[in-house]
């Protein structure tokens, strides 16, 4: 079903065929519909493929700079505490260039909700290594596969953030294999913010058929491999 809070005139959206973002945004859309928060919410979009969602929602949105969505949306929340503030970013934006801000926002327990899409690479620039790239995974910048001896192991964001936050935080990891799980985690994260608790964070494992150069079946096989490394579930709940 098309979420009510989508701008139908802007469909089809600009994401590639098979892009996991479609599922994640649809799940977010259902949560916004279900909680009836379309006119109270503000969505910040990081630079990366996520920016393509700028005119998808009939909800206020803003594109920020690469890695800077967390501090921008935290700033907004400080000015407008009654708003429901969402930040959407990729693994490059959140775990590389914007990690410092993400960690400190979590550490300060800023009452915002961050949705981070993990597809193991930089997709918008054509598929380079991200902190989340799996060991031996081939990308533009790891043509022989990621050498974890030299470039590290896949970055475990939610686990690290969980150690920084206080008891009020909600932190989870979901996978687009189960859109219902994605929806449930996003809903709990937003409710955590609405209850005036602390930082909430959902990492969503996603697929990138364009840069992985995979068909539907291969994409989901690779997603399975990701799920072995990135363990799904609620890592912290208040």
């Amino acid at each position: 079903m098309i979420p009510k809070c989508y701008k139908k005139e802007n469909l089809p959206h600009k994401f590639c065929p098979g892009c996991g973002y479609g599922v994640i945004l649809k799940s977010l859309g259902s949560v916004i519909d279900h909680l009836k928060i379309a006119n109270k919410s503000v969505i910040g979009l990081d630079i990366g493929c996520g920016l393509l969602a700028w005119n998808l929602f009939d909800v206020d949105t803003i594109q920020t700079h690469h890695g800077r969505t967390t501090p921008t949306m935290a700033g907004f929340k400080f000015a407008k505490p009654e708003a429901i503030v969402l930040a959407i970013m990729g693994d490059g934006g959140g775990y590389a260039i914007g990690l410092q801000s993400l960690l400190h926002s979590a550490h300060r327990n800023d009452p915002i909700t961050v949705i981070l899409v993990n597809n193991t690479l930089y997709a918008m620039t054509g598929g380079q290594m991200a902190p989340t790239t799996l060991a031996n995974e081939i990308t533009d910048t790891t043509p022989k596969g990621r050498d974890s001896e030299k470039t590290g192991l896949p970055f475990l964001g939610p686990e690290i953030i969980a150690t920084l936050t206080n008891k009020q935080a909600y932190i989870a990891r979901a996978s687009i294999r189960s859109p219902l799980q994605v929806e449930s985690c996003i809903e709990k994260a937003i409710k955590n913010q609405m209850r005036g608790k602390g930082f909430s964070f959902v990492e969503v494992l996603s697929i990138c058929p364009t840069n992985w150069k995979t068909n539907a079946e291969e994409s989901f096989k690779f997603l399975e491999k990701m799920e072995d490394v990135f363990v799904l579930g609620e890592i912290k709940k208040p």
Partner: peptide, 8 residues
């Protein structure tokens, strides 16, 4: 329907 990224 649930897995379609494009609401098609």
């Amino acid at each position: 329907e649930s897995v379609c990224p494009d609401t098609a």
